[in-house]
Amino acid sequence: MVMDSFNSPPIRFKVTPGRIFFMLLGNTLIALFMTGLHSESRFLTSFVYSQCMGISIATCVIFVVNYFKVSTLTVQTILVIAAIVVGIGIGVTAGLSAVNFIWSPDSSIWRPEKLKSQAPNLLYSLLFGAIVSYVFISVQKMSDEKIRRLEVEKNAAITEIKLLQSQMEPHFLFNTLSNILSLIDGDPRKARNMLEAFTAFLRASLVTARSETITVSQEMDVVKNYLEIFRMRMGDRLRYSIEIPESLQSLRIPPLLIQPLVENAVKHGLEPSVSGGNLLIRAGRDGDRMRIMVTDSGIGINELSPGNGIGLENIRKRLDLLYQGRSRISFEENQPSGVRVAIEIPYETK
């Protein structure tokens, strides 16, 4: 647990009444232990001394953990050890002063022989300080990790729901169903083709939305079925071509990354255009980068075109999660009309 935590993020302590109580209780237990160890010392003396020590170490450790910005847990551990040493220094001074003040206010404690007798106590303090800090930090780290894991799981679930929601967009669903319904009597063959494409699209969407990554060719299955549905609906107003080299087909990418771009191009670019237009999906490799481009010759984007409602944020978030800043997505005007979207991701053959 300690080994794998060299690079894990630093922790933050939350000071709660419960934790303060446990610290005081711990101090008391240590005092009892010390009294048992040295029969000549009194419990009360040890108690006062131990509380001073404990509170002082805890304060230093909490201060260091919560107010020193560090990058990893390793650096933080070193700081905590330093804090324990400083805490002991303050604790010894405070503890001795307190004990001296309560039980023998007349004599000075700062005599050499008296200080010398503190040496074993210092060692014990270091030991206990380290153990207690370790326990507290471990508990905190475990709960931090649990929260993080739950966060990741929650994000994955939300992503899946959002993806499926975008695939089940009511306008698309009902328009496609009405088309199938309207074709059943007059053109049953076309109706069957459309139903097949629709079923394949839904199945592929369901499978891909549940995976963390899929191959380019799996994604293209979703895209092709989607476009087939629209080609049947829009007739010759929609023309499309897909140019993806064989070598890139098996590459793994996040699911439903290209499909929403195709959907945007159809929904906001081509479908609203009276004469329709072309759609081109092209992928290529450039060294260690892979570039996917979706180009349409539709009505294009003006300054007030919907920008938030096109699922961009979702795509970007998922790209960030997977590639941590090594991906790019950009929009450009296509000539003479329409939009070109380009996604760049690292070329990785996992």
């Binding site: 328009n175 009405s178 088309n179 319904l181 309207s182 074709l183 007059g186 053109d187 076309k190 609906r233 829009m234 007739g235 479908e271």
Partner: peptide, 8 residues
Amino acid sequence: DEEALRSY
């Protein structure tokens, strides 16, 4: 805009 829907 969809021919099939018009005739239906």
